[in-house]
Design a protein around this nucleic acid. Sequence first.
RNA 1: GGCCUGAUGGCGGAGUGGUGACGCACCGGACUGCAAAUCCGUGAACCCGGGUUCGAUUCCCGGUCAGGCCUCCA
Length: 483
Amino acid sequence: MNLSLYDTMTRTKRAFVPADPERVTMYVCGPTVYNFAHIGNFRPVVVFDVLFRVLRRLYGEDAVVYAANVTDVDDKINKKAADEGVPISTITNRYLDAYNADARALGALPPSLQPRVTETMDAIIAMIGQLVDNGSAYAAEGHVLFDTQSFPAYGKLSGRPMDEMIAGARVDVAPYKRHPADFVLWKPSKENEPEWESPWGSGRPGWHIECSAMIEEALGLPIDIHGGGIDLVFPHHENELAQGVCAHGHEHKTEYARYWLHNGFLNMGEEKMSKSVGNVALAHDLLESYPGEAIRWALLAGHYRAPLEWNGELIGQAKNALDRLYQLLVDVRRVARDHDAELPAPDKGAVGRALEASGFLPALLDDLNTPQAFSSLFSLMNLARSELLAGETNWRRVADAQAALLEAANLLGFLVQDPDDWFQGAADEGLKARIEDLIAARAAARTAKDWPEADRIRAELAALNVEVMDGPAGATWRIKEQA
RNA sequence: GGCCUGAUGGCGGAGUGGUGACGCACCGGACUGCAAAUCCGUGAACCCGGGUUCGAUUCCCGGUCAGGCCUCCA
């Protein structure tokens, strides 16, 4: 089975072939850290995390280098810092920490590298120097601009003929630009704004150059995969590509990124209007109310390139779907215990075959078709369930079936918790002790067939947001919907 | 204004030139003191109008609606 990916540059789905299978490189445009990130900002985080995991599986954990940058020089950051009267690093560190915490809560593995603009300044200035030296860029009125006319392939990635864009543009063109499409590589800082020394005067880099510089410094050209949101195709990635290639001279022989991947947007629908409720669209806030895994599931419920309808029901649906998957894990554990059975170690060959036969891996390798992979997850779960419920339970087969489900789910970053924690994790130790006491009291009432008392205790538990489930070997419980 | 996507059951969402996955929700049954979980089962959809075809949800054209980009933006 081979991975195929849809490449924005060629507008086709192509077999993925890395330049060097020993060192597969991926770069994804990360956040500008001036505030808590919107849930939409986390779609690429989760999507490319899945790709990262898939690549690690295919090429080996140490063979994949994934860089996700952080923009920590920006007007919005400057404004926020000025408003609070603090250095920009106070702002950027605060929100980068929050961003990383949210990403972790959403089950994203940390990228191999997380370069920051402030730490890449020398490479940025050096690259601008190269561009000026070889005639791809020019200085004007304290700015340095990239000369789009010097790069014939400009516009190829986004599929925009330049003249059409200029004709339809609604923005005023700065007078010092030679061509309307030229963009800033370096610009003077305004009063009281952070600035860095450069051969063109003190100032700060334009938006696009940071990524080109980071890619060269952190990964080296060409990179295998360049990812980001669909909105970045133009102008960001188009510009990045142009400078990244042209920095190496006019032959333009340098390959920049072998595959360009872009995720679609979350369609916020009416939700956008609910500002009164507070910023429900912040991942940071959603994580207060829902498990990160459920939010992750919701983000992967649609194909990454398609728009995803983000409505109020989605995360709840995701939570319920995960409940069923986790329930299988709980049941396997309980039934095995009831039978005093030890689950044997799973057979790797059988597990591998199940991932193929269920369609799970084929779906994932087909341009990351996560919705179809989800479907396979349920068929793997059903298989495990029927093995568990078979008349003469074959523990070897149960173990293999459960292992297949777990391996598949884990590859997507799901079922990573102990199932008891999933259902009961929201309870602290004090609450757990109290629940156990109530359940013991209820068990006594049930033994005495005192149904009114048993029901009264159940109601008491329900008031604690706890659901009791009677089973042949005693009652179990779980925390219901978190408010 | 220019360029570009998408429109599938109550909700989310795959897929396909020839009986329309999967999940959530709903309904009926089994199990249960009652529930929950689980199991069995039912119902329910391809925006509109043309065209191509033996046959279109799937291909083509037009329309409507929604969204994106052209300016910071996942």
